[in-house]
Design a binder for these strands. Structure first.
Length: 329
DNA sequence: CTCCTCTCCTGGATTACATCA
DNA sequence: ATTGATGTAATCCAGGAGAGG
């Protein structure tokens, strides 16, 4: 992807380097980073390429994060760690105390692997994520939430697609609200894998007492949200870059106007022998014969605009001795 | 080897519902 | 109590990839 902006008489271009790693291969769940290469002068030094961090990063969130209590099944597998069955009871912080929902036989219609999942050990520590966030300790309408939760869980059970279930009940589709613990655990999983293979999906579903389809949908929506957020961040960053370039364009146009005004106000400067500028034909740098190091175009421009000394610009071959070619290479 | 069909998965768009101010 | 905004679970659809005939 390449994006080029042309600004007046001083065209500058910058490219949007698409170094985006594949999400599935990246350790970073967001994994999307843009690098905006502009000229050093153009690029705002305070605007590094933006990478969105959508995951909880504050110490508070981290400390409250259930990852301190939970393990991602495939992570423990990968690390060869003990499974959660060996977790001390005190660590089972998510074993909230209501409505344990018995697994419905033949529930996992989504994947046949559910019955013979190699991660089946997880089921021995099946957590009860039946509570919605309303009744997990902050009082309020706990009873009502529990009733809703029971209704939702019961409605969610047994049918993977849900639509036929709704058809049978003659009701509209129900919407299960995931508990904070479930959402947090899914977030933690998403941090490790933005996509799930069937085994991971089933293991996660078992662990969270959800249907694999629900886990799948959650990851779909989560990826969509990530992409949306990243797009917003990208737009904001590009907008800032555009503002910076616009400002620089304005400044350069103004400088150009000053130079032209100076030129028209002093039409006979060519006849005055005060200062001689030499220009190298290869690199187009300019040097004066009075100050050999003064070959910066901006310094020349400021010299032109600030001091009213008449200046002569000569082709380089005429003043070989003033600017030997290898001097600046 | 190529083509076709089927299945599965994913992204994008959209809907429907829950929650909150 | 009502309502609009917002967040998000769920659905629908199209397209790509891989397997198998």
């Amino acid at each position: 992807m390449e994006l080029a902006l042309s600004l007046g008489e001083a065209p500058k271009s910058f490219t949007l380097l698409d170094n985006t790693p594949k999400l599935s291969n990246s350790k970073d769940p967001v994994g999307f980073c843009i690098a905006l290469g502009a000229s050093d002068e153009t690029r705002a030094s305070s605007d590094p390429p933006v990478q969105l961090e959508l995951l909880p990063s504050t110490p508070v969130l981290r400390s409250q994060h259930p990852s301190s209590h939970l393990r991602i099944p495939w992570l423990t597998d990968a690390l060869g760690l003990e499974r959660m069955t060996s977790e001390p009871p005190a660590a089972r912080a998510l074993d909230v105390n209501s409505f344990p929902v018995a697994p419905v036989p033949g529930e996992d219609g989504d994947d046949g692997a559910a019955l013979s999942s190699p991660n089946s050990a997880v089921s021995s520590f099946q957590m009860d994520f039946c509570l919605r966030n309303g009744n997990s300790g902050n009082g309020g309408d706990g009873a009502a939430a529990m009733m809703r939760n029971r209704r939702d869980v019961e409605g969610a059970e047994g049918n993977d697609r849900g639509t036929s279930d709704d058809d049978e009940n003659g009701s509209t589709r129900k919407k299960l609200r995931l508990s904070k613990e479930q959402s947090a655990f899914l977030e933690e999983s998403f941090k490790e894998h933005t996509t799930l293979n069937p085994k991971q999906k089933v293991a996660l579903a078992k662990q969270l007492n959800l249907r694999p389809r629900q886990v799948e949908v959650w990851f779909q929506n989560r990826r969509a949200r990530t992409k949306l957020k990243q797009t917003e961040v990208d737009c904001e960053y590009l907008k800032r870059c555009c503002d910076t370039l616009t400002e620089e364009n304005r400044r350069l146009q103004k400088e150009l106007q000053e130079l032209r005004a100076l030129k028209t106000s002093q039409p006979f400067y060519m006849q005055l022998p005060a200062t001689t500028l030499t220009m190298c034909p290869s690199c187009e740098r300019v040097a004066t014969n009075t100050a050999a190091n003064n070959n910066d175009a901006s310094q020349i421009a400021s010299a032109l605009s600030l001091s009213n000394k008449p200046t002569r610009i000569l082709p380089f071959p005429n003043t070989q001795q003033a600017h030997p070619p290898p001097a600046h290479q």
